[in-house]
Amino acid sequence: MNTAMGPLQRQLRAGEYEIFQYAPIFESDFIQISKRGEVVDVHNRVRVVTVGVACTSPALLVPNVLLLARPVVPSEESRGRRGPPAKALELTRLLPLRFVKISVHDDEMLQLRLKLASGRSFYLQLCPQGDAHYELFDMWVKIINLLRPPAEGSHGGQALPGDPGAFGEPLFHGISQDTTGSLESLAPEEGGPDALSVRSLRTPSPSRDDPGSSRSRTPPSLSPSLPQKPPSVGRGSQRGGSAGERRSQAGSPGGSPAPQERSQGSHGSSPSSKKKESSRRADRGGGATRSKSSQSRGRTPSRILSLVKSLSRVSLSRPPKEKKKRR
């Protein structure tokens, strides 16, 4: 079972950003798209954005910040070395989750919408993850449910007073418009669907309560759990197998396109094709069910599973009134 950290978390582990050095992060790579699901780039190249939800305080029960990063263009020096250069990321933004609302834009196309407190909206489509990306998207859906402000859900008081970015109360009073953003500052010229990640979230230690000084208080048990090898959860990698087959069998009797084909097709997919996608996936059932199934099959990183389990526990206490049902 893969228990590796994602590239963003691994990079932040190096300690350049002290507050995130031991922050648990759930991260995935997304492609930035327009509201209509098209690639936002005149060169018709995908812009990969690494999106992670993180806890900057170990005392928090839920993530409090959204981190955005982009691939760094390899330097001439690193290009000259043998073998592919290590994937380097550049942390670009920290968005306190109090000021951003994450929602499912199109669950068939695995698209999320980030709506900032300024009113700007950004649309992101999960990068192809082999056969596991539906499960991964389901986890994002669970996180989204968890991150609903108390006004939308039944659970409140998750955040501690004074926690940076925690959503004790919604602060969307600044929203007066719904504009679509281009995430210009997040648009890399390099990278593509190959830059994939299914990443981990560490369960924070309840004994630590200071977001800024977690470094010195990190339990030693974290170190042995560092990955022995890169996650390598790219398209068509070790995730291929029964989970994906199950999807294919249940959801696409007529021959569903491969996950990456879905994603690539989304660059300019028509509404009718979306309807077909919907009908193909009609029998797949709810996300929680699928995730549970995937857990039992041991195809998902254990830390993500622990997150999802914890999310599920929280989610049970709130009405699923806004959850978009997959058809």
Binding site: V65, R93, L94, P96, F99, A117, R120, G165, G181
Partner: peptide, 11 residues
């Protein structure tokens, strides 16, 4: 430039 929300990083 968009209104900054949270923090934007540079190096």
């Amino acid at each position: 430039h968009d209104l900054t929300i949270g923090v934007e990083f540079g190096a």
